[in-house]
Design a protein around this nucleic acid. Structure first.
Length: 376
DNA sequence: TGTAGTTGCGCC
DNA sequence: AAAGGGCGCAACTACA
């Protein structure tokens, strides 16, 4: 599988890299301006290295704030301009370092990216990718647009909709989830209704229901739910609120609760995916990890079965080639003229591979055709 | 100077 | 005891 960053993509990437670098530098200067003086340094400029967590803790302590950890979740809970500034700096500096100009060295001269793909790179049976890792590129459109199909070609991108929730519905047999999927309801909206007790929920409430759905399936604690809601969605709640949301979730999806209790009680030493693939776990491993292995592993099985079908059916669409697979997404490059046929071919394979695993839960695949991975 | 371990964070 | 899971990469830190 090899995606393409052509000259235009490379130029766009370089502009983004420079922009991120300038932004990180500017934020570092702002930090110097408002940070307490550093012991042993006469001038403020450049006194603190903001990438050093030891120095971050030291600077915050000088400002009267004790940080137990400097990770984003913890910083989000700190009401001080230093914390907000640091969070911005971290975001910019991540883009500048991991996804900076240096990243482009891994693009071959003709514009192709030949990453290393490991078929069983993850314990769960998912693939992993390195040099470069093609599975953790920034999700923002401005970055993904740098990956472009060659002249006369297009990218057909298809991804499974809410696949992990669907798999969890099948494994747990939860009645409410099965019914919601059977009748085509939106599960995030359903959760939001049960959390708020309202029939009509706002977009923000639905958005908050997403981490609740994904997190609680794998044993997220009320405390962590609260932290994540604040850090990732800017939503504050008390721990009691979080506890109530959690209770509402498990009342609504009693089958999920039952599944978890079963794992805790039985303390299994092996877990199987819905394809029957087994892996060994410790009896005392966290139940959430075991639940996750079964779900994530099944997703991996289904995606690989889909890729295998594409190989077996490659003669139906000569010239179409998969260039990317990101856990629940497959991108195929093909001639512009065959895009519609390839879209149908891809969607069919993805559905036919996954459907038998999670029957009777329906599989939904969203397909888009565009010149770039960013969708334009 | 090079290596190993830790922390943090990008994606799903 | 309490705990969402799975990766790979960059920067920092400690140490030889």
């Amino acid at each position: 599988m090899t995606a393409t960053v052509d000259r235009r993509g490379r130029a766009a990437w370089e502009a983004l890299a420079d922009q991120a670098e300038r932004e990180a530098e500017g934020l570092a200067q702002q930090f110097d301006a408002i940070a307490p003086p550093r012991e042993g340094y006469l001038s403020q400029a450049g006194a603190w290295n903001w990438s050093s967590n030891d120095q971050v803790k030291e600077a915050f302590r000088a400002a009267g704030i004790d940080l137990e950890s400097t990770e984003d979740d913890a910083l989000a809970a700190v009401a001080h301009p230093l914390a907000a500034l640091l969070r911005h700096y971290r975001a910019a500096s991540k883009l500048a370092s991991t996804y900076g100009r240096k990243w482009l060295k891994q693009v071959a001269a003709e514009g192709r990216v030949y990453a290393d793909w490991r078929q069983l790179g993850c314990i769960t049976g998912r693939m992993s990718s390195s040099s470069p890792n093609m599975q953790n590129l920034p999700g923002e459109e401005r970055y993904r647009r740098c990956f472009r199909a060659p002249e006369g070609r297009v990218l057909v991108k298809a991804d499974y909709s809410q696949i992990e929730l669907r798999i969890a519905a099948r494994i747990s047999g939860d009645k409410a989830l099965l019914e919601a999927y059977r009748t085509g309801q939106d599960v995030h909206t359903l959760t939001a209704r049960r959390m708020t007790g309202k029939q009509e929920v706002t977009a923000a409430e639905r958005k908050l229901a997403k981490p609740v759905n994904f997190g609680l399936i794998y044993g997220l604690s009320a405390r962590t739910l609260r932290r994540k809601a604040l850090a990732e969605y800017g939503v504050s709640m008390t721990e009691e609120d979080a506890q109530r949301y959690k209770a509402a979730f498990f009342t609504t999806y009693a089958g999920i609760d039952c599944w978890h209790r079963h794992i805790r009680r039985q303390r299994p030493t092996e877990v199987r995916t819905l394809a029957g693939r087994r892996f060994v776990v410790g009896p005392d491993d966290f139940y959430g990890a075991k639940a996750n292995y079964a779900v994530q592993g099944t997703g991996g099985d289904g995606l690989k079965a889909a890729l295998a079908l594409l190989w077996e059916r490659r003669h139906e669409v000569a010239g179409a080639v998969p260039v990317l697979a990101v856990h629940d997404e497959v991108v195929v490059e093909c001639d512009a003229g065959q895009a519609e046929a390839v879209a149908a071919w891809l969607k069919t394979a993805m559905v036919e591979a996954m459907a038998p695993l999670i029957d009777p839960v329906p599989v939904e695949v969203e397909v888009k055709v565009a010149r770039t991975w960013g969708g334009d």
